[in-house]
């Protein structure tokens, strides 16, 4: 038995079906090209950087390759309400770099001092915001620092499970606190105004309850 929807699909002509299978609509090609401009610019930049020669020829072939990539691998437009705040974003990058130094030292110390006796923990963290992109960025930021990474994400309930090296039993609260601080930094750097209000409200609520 073929389900009704599938049967309707099969009865359509081959041309129609091919069009229905497309990820990206073929209408309004100019608008689509404009929307793709950031992706194209990025691809051209990567191409030029790979060659290391900055001249018209390289850029021209970069554009050709970028257009080829965009045609062969069409991607649906990403709907997002993220806002880039350059100052906050630079601060986030700086903080990531600093965190990397500190935690590299910490992991190295663990390896030298404790070695086989090292203990670890997996802590459940309930994130405040509910957005695919923010969750991904928070997980990436947490995972970049040595000693911690996100081992599992329960997207539906906004929960991250964070593996941390060198913890003792009472550390769960401080790890949760740390991950939420990362979330706050990421949201302040790229989140929408509503999400910024959400994380700030969460902080002040946490302070009152303490």
């Amino acid at each position: 038995m073929v389900p009704v929807a599938d049967r309707a699909e099969n009865e359509r002509g081959p041309v129609e079906r091919r069009r229905a299978d497309r990820v990206v609509s073929r209408r309004r090609p100019v608008a689509r090209l404009l929307r793709r401009f950031p992706l194209m610019a990025w691809l051209v930049l990567v191409w030029v950087m790979l060659w290391g020669t900055y001249d018209v020829g390289t850029v021209f072939f970069g554009i050709v390759i970028a257009m080829g990539v965009a045609v062969v691998f069409p991607t649906p437009p990403i709907a997002t309400n993220m806002v880039l705040r350059p100052g906050r974003f630079l601060w986030l990058v700086g903080f990531l770099a600093w965190d990397m130094v500190i935690s590299s030292v910490r992991v190295s110390w663990q390896a030298l001092r404790y070695g086989r006796e090292t203990r670890a923990g997996i802590v459940e963290v309930q994130l405040v915001t509910n957005s695919d992109h923010l969750t991904a960025m928070v997980a990436n930021a947490v995972s970049l620092a040595p000693g911690t990474f996100v081992i599992q994400i329960d997207r539906a309930n906004q929960i991250c499970y964070v593996y941390t090296l060198g913890v003792s039993e009472g550390d769960a609260a401080s790890i949760r606190h740390e991950v939420l601080a990362w979330e706050r930094r990421v949201v302040h750097a790229v989140g929408s105004a509503d999400e910024v209000t959400m994380v700030d409200a969460h902080v002040s609520a946490g302070r009152e309850s303490r």
Binding site: A120, G121, I122, V123, E124, S168
Partner: peptide
């Protein structure tokens, strides 16, 4: 036995 906290396991 290396994990002192395992909230994923509990879940």
């Amino acid at each position: 036995d290396v994990l002192v906290i395992d909230e994923l396991g509990q879940r």
